[in-house]
Simulated scan of single mutants.
Amino acid sequence: MQFDRLLSQTMTRITRAGQGLRKQAPADAVPLSAAMVKDDLRGSGSWANDWAKGRKASDPTPTAAPARTKRRPAAPAAAVDSIPEGTIRARPLMSTRDVKLHQWISDRLEAEAPTCALHAGVALGAFLVSAETRDGYDPLAGLVADLLISDDQGQPLVVLIRENRAHPARQILLLDALMDAGLPIVDIQPRPSLSALWSGIADHLPRD
């Protein structure tokens, strides 16, 4: 009887010890199932796909680089096909003093050189041509002769100019262009002597 009881207690201890070992067995000691073995034989790409599908919606997503905002090109200026009414007005072409001088020279031309004509406020681009005009650049732009005398063919003969104190740089360009073209220049003094002025003009007029 005592031997049977001792044997029974020993078997009970062994059984309990075995159950404890199974509970504490490491994960790598557990036999692999057929499905797990099959998964181990898959390629690395399949693991990446499973990982992408298995990501939780709550997982943080990589921060995308901010998209660059493209600036829209500036709209081309609308072509001016009309002028708003009431925005243009006339202004005097010459001062009263200049009108008197213009009339006096016209009378002398009619008497001594009737084939010539006198013009006022003529842009240099109307009777000069620049070889340097390119890509919208025109060295004659904005340059104006006070008075111009031309022959019966419209050929410029002599240019009369007055001092431009407001824009001395423009005055230099004006003189440079006229001298480069070989046109005679007569200065209009603030208080011109009519005889001296006409003498300078007459030297460049055609003689019949």
Rank of each mutant, 00 (worst) to 15 (best):
residue 11 M to R: 15
residue 11 M to F: 14
residue 14 I to R: 07
residue 15 T to H: 08
residue 16 R to A: 07
residue 16 R to N: 05
residue 17 A to G: 04
residue 17 A to R: 09
residue 18 G to A: 10
residue 18 G to K: 09
residue 19 Q to D: 04
residue 19 Q to R: 08
residue 20 G to L: 13
residue 20 G to C: 13
residue 20 G to P: 00
residue 21 L to A: 07
residue 21 L to T: 01
residue 21 L to P: 00
residue 22 R to E: 11
residue 23 K to Y: 09
residue 23 K to M: 09
residue 24 Q to W: 04
residue 24 Q to C: 10
residue 26 P to C: 06
residue 26 P to F: 05
residue 27 A to P: 00
residue 27 A to E: 13
residue 28 D to I: 03
residue 29 A to T: 03
residue 32 L to K: 12
residue 33 S to D: 07
residue 33 S to A: 11
residue 34 A to W: 02
residue 34 A to V: 02
residue 34 A to K: 10
residue 36 M to G: 08
residue 38 K to L: 10
residue 41 L to K: 09
residue 42 R to K: 08
residue 43 G to V: 10
residue 45 G to M: 13
residue 45 G to Y: 05
residue 46 S to F: 03
residue 46 S to G: 04
residue 47 W to S: 14
residue 48 A to W: 02
residue 49 N to V: 15
residue 50 D to L: 14
residue 51 W to P: 00
residue 53 K to T: 11
residue 53 K to E: 11
residue 54 G to A: 01
residue 55 R to E: 05
residue 56 K to G: 10
residue 57 A to M: 14
residue 57 A to D: 14
residue 59 D to V: 02
residue 60 P to G: 01
residue 60 P to T: 01
residue 61 T to K: 11
residue 62 P to I: 04
residue 62 P to D: 05
residue 62 P to M: 09
residue 63 T to N: 14
residue 63 T to G: 01
residue 64 A to V: 07
residue 65 A to R: 10
residue 65 A to M: 12
residue 66 P to V: 02
residue 67 A to Y: 06
residue 69 T to A: 08
residue 70 K to P: 00
residue 71 R to N: 15
residue 71 R to W: 06
residue 71 R to L: 10
residue 73 P to Q: 01
residue 74 A to Y: 03
residue 74 A to S: 15
residue 75 A to G: 03
residue 76 P to A: 00
residue 77 A to N: 05
residue 77 A to C: 02
residue 79 A to T: 13
residue 79 A to L: 15
residue 79 A to D: 13
residue 80 V to D: 05
residue 80 V to E: 11
residue 80 V to G: 12
residue 82 S to I: 01
residue 82 S to N: 06
residue 82 S to M: 01
residue 82 S to Q: 03
residue 83 I to E: 02
residue 84 P to G: 01
residue 84 P to R: 04
residue 85 E to N: 15
residue 85 E to Q: 11
residue 87 T to G: 01
residue 88 I to T: 12
residue 90 A to D: 14
residue 91 R to L: 03
residue 91 R to Q: 05
residue 92 P to L: 09
residue 93 L to S: 04
residue 93 L to W: 02
residue 94 M to T: 09
residue 95 S to E: 02
residue 96 T to A: 15
